[in-house]
Structures are given as structure tokens and as C-alpha cells.
Design a protein around this nucleic acid. Structure first.
Lengths: 112, 112
DNA sequence: CGTGTAAGGAATTCTGACACG
DNA sequence: CGTGTAAGGAATTCTGACACG
């Protein structure tokens, strides 16, 4: 249920060495951005970090912002905002569903 | 050109330990199926194997067939056939393009 | 043929800390 | 604050080989 449903993009399966190679960042930087709550890798049983392609994309964004002198704390704030948008969509969906259900209910209550 | 274009599914970024965990196969089995030319992981500079999600899917298929007693050589033959289908599509595309180009050429030759 | 295993070595990753600024 | 580095240890992966069947 947590395996089949997750898109490849979000599967945490990549080790830090590959991430470093793909992003051009050092191990130190990658681990530090985790410490600053910018990314959230998972761990294997014995503790080695596992990243997803999404994490890699995020790291590239982070690297770009860092080059512009943006501090990790600011980046964190910015990225939180980004996360609100999909949430809004979800809320909208909920509202529409509510409308729909109300409509549906009115039309069929008399049937039973 | 080989990075941006490849879908995540085909990126070779996963180490054998994760593949083993995800497929339920032993390191020995995974490496053996490579020896039998069923899968084609890449290597890091220093030699550690890197697999893609496609490889993992293939391995699950292989595991299923092996359970049915199918030998690796047969599996290899079967999987080659599967690869023809997409190729046919490509051929069809080429033929259609030929048709189109011929048509296009006839209509415009007189213009110049 | 397909897989297990012990062997020895090399490469990977981890944490905590000191350094600089 | 963000990153480099040396340190010591633990976990990962590799190859070639012997074993069984």
C-alpha cells in the first residue's frame, strides 16, 4: 500500500554518493540541508540515507538559491509556501465534492 | 542529453542492496541474471552496480518465471520478443513518415 | 543450471568534532 | 552560517571459487 502507489519519483532508493554525483553537491552539503530540514531522506535499517528523485530536484533548486546567497532558513520558508498550493487544490476538490454530494443526495433521497 | 531526457524509470541509480530488498531476490540471483544477459546494470567508476526501476520490474518478472520453472535462457528469448513490439511501432512510424514525406514532396516540388 | 556460502579486499557511508569566517 | 576535513568505525559491494545437484 505504500510501495505500489508511490510514483518512482518519490521512492527513496538512492544513496548519497549517487545524489552527490547527480547534483554536484558534496556529502557535507547534502547532509547539512537535511539538518536544516530542507530535505527528508529515509534510512535503511542500518542507517544509510536513501533519497528520491524528488529530493534530487529539490537539492538542485536549493543549490541554485544558495548560489544567489539565499540562506537555508529562507529557502525553507519559501519551500513551505510552495507546498501550500497543492493543498489549496485539494481543498477546492473537497469543496466541489461537497457540492456534488449535496446535489446527489437531494436527487436520490426520495428514491429510498 | 543523456541525463535530462531519460525518464526516472530508466535511470540507473539504485544499488544492489536496495534492489534485493525491493525484489526479494538475493545478491547472488541478481548478479547471476546479469551474467545470463537478462538485465544490464551500469557501474560506478569504481565498479558498484547501478540499477533502474525498470530493472527492478524486469527482475520481478524474472522471479515469477523462475518460480514456474522457466530457465534463464528461455526467459531471455521471451524477453527479446517483447522488445520487438515497440520496434514494430517504430517501423510503422517510419513507413508513415515515408508516405507523408512522399506526399509532401509531390505537392511542393512544383513550387520551386 | 541456479543458487548458497566463506574469503579477502576495496569502496561507501556514518557520526561528532575542530576549523574558518 | 555554511562548508571543508581528518578520524575511526561500521556497513556495502565486488570477484573468483568450491559445493550441490
Amino acid at each position: 500500500m505504500s510501495f505500489e502507489n508511490t510514483p518512482y519519483k518519490d521512492k527513496k532508493v538512492i544513496s548519497i554518493g549517487i545524489v552527490s554525483e547527480l547534483t554536484g553537491l558534496t556529502f557535507r552539503q547534502i547532509r547539512y540541508y537535511e539538518e536544516r530540514k530542507l530535505i527528508f531522506p529515509e534510512r535503511t535499517e542500518k542507517g544509510t540515507r536513501k533519497y528520491s528523485f524528488s529530493d534530487i530536484e529539490k537539492l538542485v533548486e536549493i543549490a541554485n538559491k544558495r548560489e544567489d546567497g539565499v540562506q537555508t532558513h529562507e529557502i525553507r520558508t519559501e519551500m513551505k509556501k510552495e507546498k501550500e498550493k497543492p493543498a489549496e487544490k485539494s481543498v477546492l476538490k473537497e469543496m466541489l465534492r461537497g457540492q456534488f454530494n449535496a446535489h446527489f443526495k437531494n436527487n436520490h433521497d426520495q428514491t429510498s
